[in-house]
Every structure is written in C-alpha cells, then in structure tokens.
C-alpha cells in the first residue's frame, strides 16, 4: 500500500520532470526497491588506525549483497564488522572520545550516539543477527587486509535505515599501543568484559550513501548538425555554380 503510493508519487515526479524517457532505470529503482549504497571507510579518530577501506551494498528487498574492502588493520586478528543503524548516520568525531584506562580513546559505546546500534553483524558464515553474532569473533574476517563479500538477509528496520541513508559500516579491532596484538592497554571491552577493549573498539567507519544509477544525459546535439549541414553545403555549392553559370552566360550575351 505504502509502496504503491511511493511508486505513483515518484512516477508523477518523473513525468513532471520529463524523465519518462528512462523507464528501465526508473522501474528498477522504485518497483523492486533496489538500492545501491556506497561508503568510504576512514580511521576512527584517536584509534591510531592508519588503514582505510570501501563498502558497497546492493539492497533488494531485505537481501543485502555486501562488499567490504579493508586494509591497514591489525594483522592476524579478527575484525568484527557491522551495519550500525538508527543513530545520526555519522561517524564519531574526536570529541566523542573518553578516558579509558588512562588513555583518550573511543570505544564502541562512545560512538553509539553517532552511528547508532548494531543492525546486522557482517559475519563470514552463519547468523548475521545483531544480538547473537555481534561478537562472534571466530566468524569475522581476519587480517590486515581483506575483501568481504556476502549476501545476507537484513531485518525490516535495517533495510529501512539503509534506504534512509541512516546506516553506517563499522569495522572493529585496533592496536592502540602498536604491540601487534589485542591487549588490555585500554582495559576490558565495553561489550564483553572477557575481551580486551582493543578487540572491539571501532577502527574504520563510513556512512552508507545512495549511489547514482545509470548513464548521464550529457549532450544535446548542438555540434551534431553535420548531416544536414553537409547536405545543405552540397546543395549550396550546386546552386551557387548554377547561378554563376547563368550570370556568366547572361553577361557574355550582353557584350
């Protein structure tokens, strides 16, 4: 019902702005609810992470095909990764950092007002729920650099938040003191006291934004009168020759 209304409103808007010429792209966008979202993943402030990454999500109904490329993370360690939703759709600024075990840093809880709660756990296999798999360390990507790709089913709220551009990709696991492993330099994790904070603190973060779809209409043809111009040029040449011939005959008869 709601979807129908959205579709017809969008259709009206499309007609009004003369965009009915692109029915394929339009039908794909509205009636099947497909959405393509992209994110640049950047280091979370105060995390001492120097890595980076990208994320792409193709959403079809509640099916999300997720591609994440990450690099420059702590090697040989698991990196939990999630869709965070229903916050501000932002990554936390440095000002959100607090003192943890005597060090100014940003744990997962500190970032919640910005990126929101977990909407889905981007595990490599099995469950992807927010509750049961949030810290399933044995089912998250491992290593300094990785490419993750998986099609998962997200719940209705997460699908809605993705479409509303209010979802954020967060990759966790930092090496604050640079000793090559997760330890208790920042104390215990705010999510699970059995884990060190370094293992669950946010490392990379990027808000997912709607990507453009389809080709651009970047030309109106004002330099493409070649066909007609060539024709008229040929016609003009003939006519000019004919006229000149008449004038010449005329002047020779007069003299």
């Amino acid at each position: 019902m709601k979807k129908k209304t959205v579709t017809s409103v969008a259709a009206l808007a499309a007609i009004a702005s003369g965009l009915v010429l692109a029915p394929t792209a339009f039908a794909g966008g509205a009636s099947h609810g497909d959405a393509e979202l992209h994110a640049m993943l950047s280091p979370v402030p105060t995390s001492k992470v120097t890595g980076s990454g990208t994320a792409m999500v193709h959403l079809k109904g509640n099916q999300a095909t997720v591609t994440i490329k990450a690099q420059g993370l702590l090697a040989g360690a698991p990196h939990a990764q999630h869709f965070h939703i229903a916050g501000k759709g932002q990554c936390p600024p440095a000002s959100a950092a607090k003192m943890h075990n005597g060090h100014l840093s940003l744990n997962t809880t500190d970032g919640l007002p910005f990126y929101g709660k977990i909407g889905a756990s981007l595990t490599t296999s099995g469950d992807t729920g927010a509750d049961h798999s949030a810290l399933a360390v044995e089912r998250f990507p491992m290593g300094a650099s990785y490419t993750y790709q998986r099609t998962i089913t997200v719940d209705d709220e997460t699908a809605k938040e993705l479409r509303a551009e209010n979802a954020v990709v967060v990759v966790h696991g930092i090496d604050f003191n640079g000793n090559g492993k997760y330890d208790n330099v920042l104390g215990a994790s705010d999510l699970d006291p059995k884990l060190p904070a370094e293992a669950t603190d946010p490392a990379l973060c990027g808000p997912l934004k709607m990507a453009p779809a389809g080709a651009v209409a970047g030309g109106m043809g004002g330099t493409q009168n070649g066909d007609t111009i060539a024709l008229s040029a040929a016609g003009g040449l003939l006519a000019a020759a004919g006229g000149a011939l008449y004038l010449r005959r005329r002047s020779s008869r007069q003299s």
Partner: peptide, 18 residues
C-alpha cells in the same frame, strides 16, 4: 540565389564541428 547559396556554404564551413 547565388549569394544565398554562398552564405549557406559559409554557414556549413563555420558551424560547430562534432
């Protein structure tokens, strides 16, 4: 007519190229 035809030619030669 000849003048017109020549003008057409000139247009063809100065019109924007692809």
């Amino acid at each position: 007519f000849t003048t017109g035809a020549l003008a057409l030619l000139a247009t063809a030669m100065t019109a924007p190229q692809p």
